[in-house]
Amino acid sequence: MTDTDKQEKQNAGEQLASAISSEVMIDLKQVNKWYGSFHVLKDIDLIVHKGERIVVCGPSGSGKSTLIRCINHLEEHQTGSIVVDGITLDKNLKNIDHIRTEVGMVFQNFNLFPHLSILENLTLGPIWVRKMPKADAHAIAMEYLERVKIPEQADKFPGQLSGGQQQRVAIARSLCMDPKIMLFDEPTSALDPEMIKEVLDVMVELADTGMTMIVVTHEMGFAETIADRVIFMDQGDIVEENEPNGFFNHPEHERTRLFLSQIL
């Protein structure tokens, strides 16, 4: 990578950074979580602003997946507070339902519904949760399928698609719910190498629209391109947090350095 390239990227980053508003979308304070007696998340503090793009990385078992799964309450944290878009995640089921409609999530294994066609996968949420008329839901679904460049697959079933296509469908499915925040849990780790790019392209395009994103990934090139901040987690702690340039070029913590040397 030449210096001019880097310069360009940094400029791009600054331009994007300007799109970040001061509105806080996600606010984690002193979040702790245990699986039985195993302490997965330790006093996590994290503030994500609207339009901010954050990449979380770290060795396996560091708690990074658990962290983003807590944000839409797929996992329940035990202490501390999580506020998403002004709504506190607590025992109130209505709040949880509401947050889930506001937060889209993309999984490592896609988790598409195999008994439904691609179109039905996309319209399920809008019809049954957003209570949208069928025709409108279809229109929106087709619009997003075009954005992820597979409108011709609408009537197929998930099992008939390649991994990359399935993951793009999964992204479109989340977008159909019109979320304010998108969470990505290792979206490319289950994909064959030749399919990773098509998914990352879609994600980059999404990032360009100013979506608030938290991405757990090991794709460091992707992180450098789009991230406003990179967070490194290890053993349930946020060990280091920096803008990408600083993170990759001057890692401060010993463990970060070790991790980067292994992965790059």
């Binding site: 889930r100 937060v103 999530m105 519904f113 008994h115 399920l124 949420g125 949760v129 999964a170 499915r173």
Partner: peptide
């Protein structure tokens, strides 16, 4: 489990998840 989680992330509640996603399969 991913099917339950997929259904939760698009905002389906217990009955929606069971009736639309889990039971049919």
């Amino acid at each position: 489990r991913g099917q339950f989680e997929g259904a939760h992330t698009i905002g389906l509640g217990y009955w929606g998840t069971m009736g639309l996603v889990v039971m049919p399969q």
